[in-house]
Amino acid sequence: MSTYRYLCFLLVSMLIPGIAWGAENTVHWMTPHYTFNRTTVIAGARYFADHCMACHSVSSLRYEYLRADLGMTKKEVEEDIMLPNGAAWKGQIVSPMPPDMAAKWLGKPPPNLSHMDRYLGSKFIYTYLLSFYWDPARPSGWNNYVFPMVAMPNILAPWGGTVGPKGQVIFPGRLSPAEYHKNVADVVAFLRYASDPSYFTRMAIGPYVIGIMVLFTILAYFLKAAYWIDLKKKRK
């Protein structure tokens, strides 16, 4: 079902009627193999800052949240994540690229990725990032199996390598596939955090909240029993 939904979305949003690849290559959805914890999210945040943030914003997040939610130090955030464009510590994580310029260069402005994980799902983003292929017919030279005619070029090609439309390797990447997939999975982890920032807080306090509710329930049960014993005695 979800596959169908994604395909529908793509068709409608890209306004392309019928694509040949749909019938021939069914998209094989890949599940990112990562453990979703602070370490992977921080690694993903660093990778995102280095490779994605030039174009993409995650404007719902603020730099200070990376300290509050992920436990990074202020210095780490300032040195590794914040761009040297006068971004404020409490400010939103915004790409320095002006949106109108981006639209001019790339055809459409790069989307804000704040809620992308909840909208498309981790599987989609992961598979999408690993599904670029070389297509000289496209203005950017890139095409994508899961997002045909995508405006975004495969900026990760130097690390992940370049493949042709049939999956043949044209240039191998600087990283081994395993390392590269790990990096992409980290980015997916970061985007998951970005669209669900309360996750770590919820996991931290959830057990206590449930614990106290269970305690209340147990006490209420005994209180109820202490009253309803009246009726049980009568029936004997």
């Binding site: 329930t217 006490l219 209420a220 209180l223 009253y227 309803w228």
Partner: peptide, 10 residues
């Protein structure tokens, strides 16, 4: 009321 209190807990 006490019975519903238990229900509220659950």
């Amino acid at each position: 009321t006490v019975k519903d209190l238990f229900g509220v807990g659950v």
